[in-house]
Design a protein around this nucleic acid. Structure first.
Length: 107
DNA sequence: GCCATGGCTAGTA
DNA sequence: GCCATGGCTAGTA
């Protein structure tokens, strides 16, 4: 597995319940600001095998990216179960729910 | 190497 | 348009 991929996985795994992050934000933290689409790929390829909280990842507007209706509903259910409010349009208020990991927590 | 993939995104029109 | 991966292919050695 490539370093970028591992980094992305580590970041996503660290998102606490009830919080969300955006594709671009994760890409940037993983070291490649414009690689948001790679985050999408990682999510597709690894979320199952790595047990990632895929539902806590949104696009830059705080909207659910998932196109398939069923997966979208599952995502909404997961978020709401964690206390995240999702509007009828499938939007989440990033100002309230976006997670910012602490900068390099010391051991 | 090349090419497709992919749940994006900053920034014009 | 951007860009990291994986898979496949020409084309050398």
């Amino acid at each position: 597995m490539q370093p970028f991929t591992e980094e992305v996985i580590a970041i996503i795994r660290a998102i606490p319940a009830g919080k969300v992050m955006t594709y671009g934000q994760i890409a940037e933290l993983a070291g490649s600001r414009r690689a948001a689409r790679q985050v999408v790929r990682v999510l597709h390829a690894m979320s199952r095998s790595h047990g990632l909280p895929w539902h806590r990842v949104l696009n830059a507007h705080g909207k659910i990216g998932e196109r398939d209706g069923e997966s979208m509903m599952r995502q909404i259910e997961h978020l709401e179960a964690e206390g995240v409010k999702v509007s009828a349009r499938g939007e989440i208020d990033l100002a309230v729910y976006q997670y910012w990991p602490p900068p390099e927590s010391p051991i």
